[in-house]
Design a protein around this nucleic acid. Structure first.
Length: 200
DNA sequence: AAGGCCTGCAACCGCGTCACT
DNA sequence: TAGTGACGCGGTTGCAGGCCT
């Protein structure tokens, strides 16, 4: 019944990736490019299922991935995009060069969600948690609250000292310069092919 | 100093969608 | 046109490290 498993689980590794597995995967993609994930593990000599390889590459091994703390600017973009798109992490990631959907999803669940709740804002609807307030709150008011959420979450006030705030201490870009916030459903702007980037 | 709890991240799982035959 | 298979996405879980008592 149901769909067949994506791979032969009896002969695949699970759990954390080893350095050697990483190297094999990177080397294979450098040589052959992305695609055909199902056959990649066998071709690359990996005892992993294709989905696992794809995830590892996209979320960790891709050369254009920006690792490190989220800036306040990125924070703001994520909140705005989530307000418009909902849990469409891949679309949101497409607007944040160097960030992955998994990373953004984790960041949302562990940091931003908490910030919004602390400010009395429903992270799903972006409306005030009070239903009565939600019924009357104009969008501009919501933006005010979001802004307040940011300012109140600075290390001085929150006490948690999120390093992303530290990083952004000198970054104050009200216009989010350089980031495409156009929310039309066009394909996200890809930098250049990751494989091409590797080749360079 | 030790134990327990909390937080954050990496990875897995299942489902939906799309392309090909 | 329908069926099948592969890919991509979002939700969830497990583990490791840090913090608190």
């Amino acid at each position: 019944m149901g769909r067949s498993p994506c791979c032969e689980k009896a002969h695949t590794n699970k759990g954390a990736w080893t350095k050697e597995e990483d190297q094999r995967l990177v080397a294979y993609i450098k040589a052959h490019g992305e695609g055909c994930w199902r056959s990649l593990p066998k071709a690359a000599g990996l005892l992993r299922c294709g989905k696992s390889c794809r995830l590892r590459w996209i979320n960790y091994l891709r050369p254009d991935i920006k690792r490190g703390n989220f800036t306040k600017e990125e924070d703001d973009i994520i909140i705005r995009l989530h307000q418009s798109l909902g849990n469409k992490w891949s679309l949101i990631a497409g607007r944040l060069p160097g960030r992955t959907d998994n990373e953004i999803k984790n960041y949302w669940n562990t940091h931003i969600k908490r910030k919004l709740v602390a400010r009395g804002i429903d992270p799903q609807t972006h409306h005030p948690l009070s239903a009565a307030a939600a019924a009357t709150a104009p969008s501009s008011r919501l933006q005010d609250q979001l802004a307040a959420a940011h300012s109140s979450c600075s290390p001085e006030t929150s006490g948690t000292g999120h390093s992303s705030d530290d990083d952004s201490a000198s970054v104050q870009h009200p216009h989010l310069g350089g980031i495409d916030l156009n929310l039309s459903l066009s394909p996200p702007s890809q930098p250049s092919s990751p494989v091409a980037a590797v080749a360079n």
